[in-house]
């Protein structure tokens, strides 16, 4: 549904977005994650046809974003960051204007406006002048506007920024509702990981204008996290360590920071990428008659991975290449 190839935007010599490539299938929901200033809004503005790209290509529903702008615009519902609205109009006047502008047929207009207003809980405030609305309500008006032409693709730029937790919940529920229906392809950006995780299975991580990761949270953990485990066993230090080191696939064995129970040992184990050595470990320990009290995977939390990905985009790409090399060897 959304197809982006080497999309680049340069301001003078500074690349705001460089060679972004990704593909989003119909009905998919993707969280576009990155710190402030990473290039999220620039990418989104290019996708919605507001900003021209320096180079690269993008298409939505098969229509070139830069050549068939109006075709694309008719298919995309877009909620810009900061939700710009005509503050002198009433909610209903604004939505009526937007419905007309987005070519909603006259016969369906009334029903469509009523539908988006009830969906975004705006019906009671329809006569309010937009200037008098609170931040949360303004965001809902923007969301109603994005939905008004029943778009195939919904692009939301930081839909929850500046919200209190309750408003955030409401907005995420709105998005959830659409996801459940499964008719809309959604790309939404955020700099808050938990928010993206709450709604979408797939994450697209951008940092310093580059797409640094793309996949489900499991994929990202597997790809970018360390493959670490910890074990606690009732055994002497030397034999336990020796035993662990003899198991193929284990790269490193280190004493765990946490103190073991009396008479036991506790180790942190790093295994090769993609390997799960737990079966081999328990088997080996059982053969020797050593009692294992604890054996578990220490998954790197997604937060840590995200923080790492965005803090050193270039550095991390190199590191990933290196670890992948290790895994392949």
């Amino acid at each position: 549904m959304i197809d982006v190839q080497d999309l680049t935007k340069e301001y003078g010599n500074v690349a705001a977005v460089s060679k972004a490539t990704f593909r989003i299938g119909a009905g998919e929901i993707v969280g576009f994650l990155g710190p402030n200033g990473a290039g999220k809004s620039t990418t989104i503005r290019m996708l919605t046809g507001y900003l021209p790209a320096t180079s690269g290509a993008a298409s939505i529903d098969g229509f070139d974003v830069f050549r068939k702008g109006n075709e694309v615009r008719a298919r995309v519902g877009y909620l810009p960051e900061n939700v710009p609205l005509y503050s002198d109009l009433r909610v209903i006047e604004f939505l009526r204007f937007r419905a007309q502008q987005k070519l909603v047929p006259a016969s369906e207009r009334r029903a469509r406006i009523d539908y988006v207003m009830s969906r975004c809980a705006l019906t009671e405030r329809q006569r309010s002048v937009i200037a008098t609305l609170s931040r949360g309500f303004r965001q809902r008006v923007g969301f109603a506007d994005a939905l008004i032409a029943n778009p195939k693709v919904l692009i939301l730029d930081e839909p929850t920024s500046g919200f209190d937790p309750l408003q955030r919940r409401e907005m995420l529920d709105l998005i959830h509702g659409l996801v459940a229906e499964g008719k809309t392809t959604i790309l939404f950006s955020s700099h808050i990981l938990s928010e993206v995780q709450a709604v979408s299975k797939r994450l697209l991580v951008i940092a310093k204008g580059k797409i640094v990761a793309d996949g489900g949270s499991e994929d990202l953990i597997r790809k970018f996290g360390e493959n670490q485990y910890h074990i606690e066993a009732l055994a002497g230090e030397a034999p336990a360590r020796e035993l662990l080191e003899s198991i193929p696939g284990i790269v490193q064995v280190a004493k765990a920071a946490e103190a073991p129970a009396p008479g036991g040992v506790r180790y942190t184990i790093t295994a090769k990428h993609g390997d799960d050595p737990r079966d081999a470990i328990s088997e080996a320990f059982m053969k020797r008659g050593i009692r294992v009290r604890e054996l578990a995977s220490d998954r790197t939390p997604l937060e840590t991975i995200f923080a790492r990905l965005v803090s050193g985009a270039e550095l991390e790409t190199a590191a990933v290449a290196a670890t992948e090399g290790v895994a392949a060897a």
């Binding site: 503005r45 615009r73 877009y78 810009p80 900061n82 710009p84 609205l85 005509y86 502008q101």
Partner: peptide
């Protein structure tokens, strides 16, 4: 100034 141009220009117009 208010950024509404973005909204205006990303609708068919």
């Amino acid at each position: 100034r208010l950024g509404t141009i973005e909204m205006l220009m990303t609708a068919p117009s």
